[in-house]
Write a protein that binds this DNA or RNA. Structure first.
Lengths: 95, 95
DNA sequence: TGGCAATACCTTGCGATCCGAGGTATTGAA
DNA sequence: TTCAATACCTCGGATCGCAAGGTATTGCCA
């Protein structure tokens, strides 16, 4: 989950709702995260210093835009390595 | 998790402790499941009709040997499809 | 022979987490 | 004017993986 959120925001700064849409589109509806999942996860990542946020108003709607911090970028690389290792292990164990 | 357990037991009937070892070996220590994870999961899968078990004593130690039921085999195929779709989606969303 | 590692089973409780369901507010189209 | 879409948020339930604890046996080694 953290991996997905960090990766989406790494491409470009995004707000919560935008993250949900970006991931849904990138995966052709395969991954459709609930808002009740994403918002708390974003707070968690910000509290952990991996994301930073700022408010912005676009067409009368307020958005909280998230961007990666330096630590967030480092963590993203780690998440990617861990995902690769994990996915490889699952393949090996289930082949 | 279910996917890993079903896949391990599909290769050959196994007991709980053996499942832990099989997966650890297959993944070069990458996946090292806790017993507190595996045993309850096996009960769950048996209760769901995906596994069947029988007792056996080997060198003075009793083992509960699990094997896949027909439904378990069907479920395994489904789990494999779902894993493939999921892994592909993660790749797409994080590339 | 005494003790410890390995084998093998099991249960309990904590923490994390994902989601569904509900709530608020705005814009824009039908 | 009403409804879908956009956009935020919170709460509670259910699940789940694990650490930690427990029991019992075998077999090795000091």
């Amino acid at each position: 989950m953290d991996f997905l959120l960090l990766a989406a925001i790494a491409r470009q700064p995004l707000h919560g709702y935008g993250v949900v849409e970006a991931i849904r589109q990138a995966t052709g509806n395969e991954l459709d995260l609930a808002e009740g999942t994403v918002y708390p996860a974003l707070y968690r990542l910000e509290r952990a210093g991996l994301l930073a946020s700022s408010w912005k108003t676009v067409r009368g709607r307020r958005r909280r835009i998230y961007r990666l911090t330096r630590r967030g970028r480092t963590r993203l690389e780690r998440e990617r390595r861990e995902w690769t290792a994990f996915a490889g292990a699952v393949e090996a164990a289930t082949a």
